[in-house]
């Protein structure tokens, strides 16, 4: 029963929502509004789960004194301090909370992603060494698109931005459409499997 009742909730509510898409009746719309209100009331607790998970993982590392446990202390301290600053001084512009965002979180986030520029370049070199005709096509398309986005591309030849635009609007569109259709069919099939109770992994393990 610990698995069957949740499964029944998904199937019954899922079919109601599937019908709702086809029946724009007021009762159906009201039911959907009610559901939205409940989901909004439920959503803050998901963040609570994330915080608890982070605390449990890091406190376990600290208690066991596993190598690098000091960094877990830093993670927990920065979490507590940032959260407390937000509650004490508020989250408006000009508060210490926004100072932390602008001078700690945002620079680190941008730098972390900019690091990928180096790794993506070395990964590209390893992956694209034009070993086959397909890899060459990928490499040439990537180079033209990259050059087409920057002034140097225009300086080399006026054809580069035009070719880049053509690649994006024609063969790239065909590729995205073909892949998109496959993804759409996959999404529909997976949704159907969940709705019919065939796919149950989201229930987790145990009884």
């Amino acid at each position: 029963m610990k698995r069957q009742i949740p499964l029944l909730i998904v199937i019954i509510l899922g079919f109601i929502f599937a019908i709702h898409t086809f029946v724009p009746h007021k009762a159906s719309a009201d039911f959907y509004d009610w559901y939205q209100t409940w989901i909004k009331a439920l959503s803050p607790f998901m963040v609570l789960l994330g915080i608890m998970s982070l605390f449990m993982v890091n406190t376990a590392k600290i208690q066991r004194k596993i190598p690098g446990w000091q960094y877990s202390v830093i993670t927990l301290l920065s979490l507590i301090v940032t959260g407390a600053v937000g509650f004490i001084w508020g989250t408006q512009e000009g508060t210490p909370f926004m100072w932390l965002f602008k001078n700690v979180q945002m620079p680190m986030g941008a730098t972390m992603f900019s690091l990928l520029a180096f790794y993506i370049a070395s990964a590209a070199y390893k992956a694209f060494r034009a070993r086959s005709i397909e890899a060459t096509v990928l490499l040439v398309a990537a180079i033209i698109v990259m050059l087409g986005q920057v002034p140097i591309g225009m300086a080399i030849s006026k054809w580069i931005p035009e070719t880049s635009s053509w690649i994006l609007n024609v063969p790239n569109l065909a590729a995205k459409r073909g892949i998109g259709l496959g993804v759409g069919l996959g999404m529909t099939a997976t949704s159907l499997k969940i709705l019919l109770g065939i796919e149950r992994t989201y229930l987790g393990g145990g009884d």
């Binding site: 949740p6 509510l13 899922g14 898409t21 759409g184 949704s191 709705l195």
Partner: peptide, 19 residues
């Protein structure tokens, strides 16, 4: 599982909408 399946139920709309 109860809050998870309650959120998961919206998948019913996903079938016709994704199609």
């Amino acid at each position: 599982r109860y809050p998870i399946v309650f959120g998961m139920a919206i998948i019913g709309m996903g079938v016709p909408l994704s199609m």
